[in-house]
Design a protein around this nucleic acid. Sequence first.
DNA 1: ATCCTTGCAAATGATTTGCAAGAGT
DNA 2: ACTCTTGCAAATCATTTGCAAGGAT
Lengths: 137, 137
Amino acid sequence: MQCYAEMIKNSGLKATFQRMTILSVIDKFGHISIDEIYEEVKKTHPTLSLATVYKNILNMVSHNVLTEVPIAGKKSKYEIKKADHIHLVCTNCNSVTDIDVEIPVNSAFEKLAGEESFKISSTQVNIYGVCPNCSKA
Amino acid sequence: MQCYAEMIKNSGLKATFQRMTILSVIDKFGHISIDEIYEEVKKTHPTLSLATVYKNILNMVSHNVLTEVPIAGKKSKYEIKKADHIHLVCTNCNSVTDIDVEIPVNSAFEKLAGEESFKISSTQVNIYGVCPNCSKA
DNA sequence: ATCCTTGCAAATGATTTGCAAGAGT
DNA sequence: ACTCTTGCAAATCATTTGCAAGGAT
């Protein structure tokens, strides 16, 4: 995840300072909610407004720079777009971890969807439970 | 899905008229958002308040009568709780359909989660795309 | 009789919008 | 230069809360 400016320009948006700052925060945290992004971004750029964070997240999601990760009972988190993968969601500490393998089930999904004549565009898999860290305590 | 009163009482809640009405609407529609529930419920019971719908959805989710289905870019929908299964989410008409098979991947999930020492409590799979109806048009 | 639940209205929180000034290409 | 983007404040929308009255067990 080297060049944020390129990612943004390639999507058709202008590479503003605000967007690059937001992207770098998301990249650093992996999965993060809008208000968390704002809190983080404020530390280095106190004038960057919450409205700007909102506008940009929406914008970058619809331009395929970011992906929304909706989570039951919580606010959505956002991540930099990459191939579909599995999320481990800790219901205790609210952390989200990627499992970086191909979703092992895409063929099964396609078969199922095919039976229903459903045209797949993307898949989203959340596994809820307790992460190793929280299990200890 | 015969006896709403039983479902509610078994969960430890009182079987009020409002809860049974809400449950029957969810049952009828399968997957439905809070404001849609309210609109529907108002038709037969105009005095049932939106606050009551909110309170009861939250309550029945935490008492395991309902399950929240979070959807990227949309408001969550709610369904009557049953075994984990796959949702086909149409990004065109916003409909949600169940695929009523065991999630074909639970063993794969467990293996993956096991490698990470992650204790699974539930899984949530959304497949986004275009449903047969919308494909025609 | 007791405790839980409702409905209302108000409070809070989250998100969106309009617009003039400023930044990117 | 031109167009897109920002920041602010206000507007809007979504959700939660407190409390007195009513309902379920």
